[in-house]
Amino acid sequence: MDVFLQTLVSGVLIGGIYALIGIGMTLIMGVMHIINLAHGQLMMVAMYITFVLYQYLGLDPYVSLFIAMPALFLLGAVIQKLFLNPLLKVDSILPENQVLMTVGIGMVLTEIVRIIFGSDYKSVTTSYSGSVMYLGDIAFNTPMVVAFGIALALTAGLFYFLLRTDLGKSVRATAQNKEAARLMGVNAERITVLTFGIGAGLVAAAGTLLLPIFYLFPDIGGHFTLKAFVITILGGLGSTVGAIFGGVVLGIAESFGATYLSMDLKDVVGMVIFLLVLIFLPGGLKRLTKI
């Protein structure tokens, strides 16, 4: 029973961070109707920023959040403005161009990082990296708990922005009906730039929070793009609430896979769930929750 609970706890904790990755991707999906296949690579860039800040300035990864997030917001906004929006002109004939562009951007980011840092594994080991809290017999890895809390706060902040502010409502309006949004005076192009920025900022937060736990190397990005894609499909494309469920489901699935099958097979479990969802629940979890 303890093992079961322990597995569940670590699954939920990692799931909270996965949700952060998925929300960014689903937001971009919802507004721009493209799958951002550079999502994990953006996260990787944020991780390297955090790594450099730690290595050379001794900055704590949690403090680096305040640098990595704005930096990635800017990078995301620039990508949307300079690389993706120009492709909108041929959107009606070649809609897949934008997705191909994100693949290219992902590759370029990976290779630039490889040129600068090489392919070696890096890691950030803080004083609290290995620290553990206990609740009864269940162990809580402290960095994971903190990361989960921050992920929760960021998600709450995002929901407040989307549901309560005019700008956030404009983002939702653009996602639901772009032409009508423009008629209402929403500068749809600016909204796309903002949305990509927010998506990149959120995945930057996830990267920074995961850094004390994961090894870092340039190709880690592709790995997480795949995860983000699975989460987004699990949640139902374009649904932010769905992405949270998707993230937690994937986290729990991997955690159970690692405990009860084998560590090497944990990604397989995620993929099997992904396939099952595609076959039996093509609309994702959104179909069940209706939100």
Partner: peptide, 27 residues
Amino acid sequence: PAHSIIGLGLAHVPEGRQLFPEMTVKE
């Protein structure tokens, strides 16, 4: 650009309503 027209005092009620389906009437 299209988004600056409404600010001039010209509102367009489009064909087929074009509401934001997953927003409340108030929103």
